[in-house]
Design a protein around this nucleic acid. Structure first.
Lengths: 221, 221
DNA sequence: CATTGTGAACGCCTTCACAGCC
DNA sequence: GGCTGTGAAGGCGTTCACAATG
């Protein structure tokens, strides 16, 4: 029964595992030994039943009456998320956003390492960010040969995104994080996540526009 | 019937409306007059039934046998998303990421305008990005008085995010886009969306870790 | 007795499938 | 014939509520 670990885990749960990971990391570094589903829920703005359901997907190791062992749970969550190894990442498109990401805590701390920065702009080729040189996109295959990156980050303009993504897939990248405002069309085996600033903003304005125009009869919440 | 516009619209649909908006904008600028749900689905990597269901939430104006009028549909979608006005935005935290966002097409084109850049780092105060000066966070109230921003973008380190978000709410901001790796705890009336690089990356590694270990070996324990 | 793990109910989004309309 | 709009069915995640447990 502890070995139902390979069962399907819903995507919303995976998202939250990442949140739990951070909360647990914080709790551990404050020296806390145990944590209850209620505490996790509080810290993550969730509800306790959801937390328990989520964690039950990883196995059965909570202690009724006490909660979860922080260190043990953290280790399980880390392993589930693949954080027990280091993932090599290439970033294609070293404009402002690409640069910002390369220096962000998401990449500079923990299980990720930027092994390649690629662009086509001659003006920036050769420059170095966090110790990694910017190389021409045409050298992608070489970078891939050297470092076998499994994750590619696309921070190009929308027009270049599809082509760049295809190139990444060609050299063996199988997960893509796309920041370009474009829908990528790739083989099913490639995992794609798109983070789209415009979409995020427009979701906000959608709800706000409704509130503003709602003149009283709005129950949208 | 055409005015069933005030009905509840599912959040996943709202997300996709933003995608349709972009596709329609492209179609319009290529001079296309009509577009079918199948074409929209193709361009957005969706399926046609979903597209029709989504659009039906905005009213009934497709033409059986022909499709949708591009210009008309675009106008409807724009209005639903609140893109028929300009939304003033303040960005708090003008590090690499804040800067990148301030210059990104999401803000520089279309219905958004950056009216304030705030930070606490003396070294950058007074500098200008896209014509907007960086001011000290303590001047937030003044910025709010001048421009009544309804959207606040948080691009501070995690430790400052909660405090900054509360300050934004205090001065009247009611939608927050949070890029800090932290869960924000705010009143229910405030709309919050969090974009978390670590979470996105970890979702990718979750699935990839499963694939890698999936060859029969249960290295999950 | 506080807290977990989970069957069952619920609600919501997706997908099917087709009547109806151009 | 081509395509929309939608009832109905299906699938999936969330929430409830409680028996089980240290």
């Amino acid at each position: 029964m502890a070995e139902r670990v390979r069962a399907h885990i819903p995507e919303p749960t995976v998202l939250r595992l990442s949140i739990y990971q951070r909360i647990l990391h914080g709790a551990a570094s404050r020296g806390e030994r145990t944590i209850s589903s209620a505490q996790l829920a509080e810290a993550g703005s969730l509800n306790a039943a959801k937390v328990r359901r989520d964690l039950s997907h990883l196995g059965t190791f909570g202690m009724p009456g006490t909660g979860y062992d922080v260190a043990f749970l953290l280790e399980r969550v880390d392993r589930a998320l693949g954080l027990d190894r280091v993932w090599p990442v290439v970033i294609v498109g070293v404009g402002h956003l690409g640069r910002a990401l390369a220096r962000s805590p998401g990449f500079t701390t923990g299980g990720f390492r930027v092994v390649g920065l690629l662009d086509t702009d001659p003006a920036i080729l050769g420059a170095t960010i966090e110790g990694v040189a910017i190389r021409h996109l045409s050298e992608l295959r070489d970078v891939a040969r050297e470092h076998s990156p499994s994750i590619g980050v696309v921070t190009t303009p929308a027009g270049a995104a599809q082509h760049v993504a295809e190139s990444l897939v060609e050299v063996g990248v199988c997960s893509i994080l796309n920041f370009a405002p474009a829908v990528l069309n790739l083989p099913d085996r490639v995992l794609v996540r798109t983070v789209d600033l415009s979409v995020e903003l427009q979701v906000l304005t959608f709800y706000q526009a409704r509130l503003a125009g709602g003149a009283g009869l709005d129950n949208a919440l």
